[in-house]
């Protein structure tokens, strides 16, 4: 069951520093939503606040409302660990666990959560997740080898397999292709298309073509001014953002006439 996410008046702080101001977004279930914008304008910060990974950084906090299928994410009594079990995340740099084999890496989420499972069930999860991440054919003969031995693109798909192995409701992707070559990028994009049928996906990207290719809705972030917090300038269906955006700055950015 994929979930929708509702963000209202979200302000995000690092200590006293207001990083992102007043974000309002409605992310639809079973769709791909892309965040684009220049570096340092808070795309990743907003993304991390959607599964409470933001607060892992000391001093970081948020104010405002994030609701996942109507449940407030930042209400008192919400367990961040439980949130993260339902909202998975793929990071910019591939980060497989160096002490684990490919097989163990895929199962890490289940194993680390002390879930007991039989051998056949575990094999099933590994195969399903690796197939889902388009990696099965490349690694099926060496599941026992260390995950760090794979190439960068394979490692990133391994991390995606690891994220979908725990069957989250929502998948957050923070520039998942920025360290990948075009072929791996295309594999990950195909994967996003397939995953869309089961998951809600939010992706941060610097690659506007990628946003145009994979996403249904696009949010454009920008700094208000130098030294001011970042903000969500425009949020619209991708086709509209790339053909006829409401905002002048958005048009300048997507057409490459920025600044």
């Amino acid at each position: 069951m994929a979930k929708s996410i509702e963000v209202d008046n979200l302000d995000i702080y690092y200590g006293d520093f207001l990083a992102v101001e007043n974000v309002n977004v409605h992310i639809k279930a079973k769709s791909v939503t892309a965040f684009i914008g220049p570096s340092g304008c808070g795309k990743s910060t907003v993304l991390r606040s959607l599964n409470r990974m933001h607060e892992v950084i000391p001093g970081a906090r948020v104010s405002g409302n994030v609701r996942v299928d109507g449940q407030a994410l930042y209400a008192p009594g919400v367990d961040p660990v439980a949130v993260r079990r339902q909202i998975g995340m793929v990071f910019q740099r591939p980060n497989p666990f160096p002490t684990m084999s490919i097989y163990e890496n895929v199962l890490a989420g289940n194993r680390l959560n002390a879930k007991r499972m039989g051998k056949s069930e575990a094999d099933d999860i590994v195969e399903r997740s690796l197939r889902g991440a388009n990696l099965w054919n490349e690694v099926k003969d060496r599941l026992g080898k260390p995950g760090m031995g794979l190439s960068g693109g394979q490692q990133q798909r391994l991390c995606i397999a690891r994220a979908i192995a725990v069957e989250p409701e929502v998948l957050l992707m923070d520039e998942p292709c920025s360290a990948l070559d075009p072929i791996s990028t295309s594999a990950v994009e195909d994967l996003i298309h397939e995953l869309k049928s089961e998951y809600t996906i939010v992706i941060v990207t610097h690659n506007m073509q990628q946003a145009a290719r994979v996403s249904d809705d696009t949010g454009f972030f920008n700094l208000k001014a130098v030294g001011e917090p970042g903000q969500l300038v425009e949020f619209n269906p991708t086709t509209k953002v790339f053909s006829n955006p409401d905002n002048e700055a958005t048009e300048a950015y997507v057409s490459g006439r920025f600044g």
Partner: peptide, 25 residues
């Protein structure tokens, strides 16, 4: 820190992250 974050993002509690990811590494 990437490894700790990777573990948290899988919904693993902090103490298990330390025992199963940080210490073995």
């Amino acid at each position: 820190n990437d490894l700790r974050e990777a573990s948290y993002a899988l919904g693993v509690p902090k103490w298990r992250t330390i025992v199963k990811v940080v210490l073995p590494t």
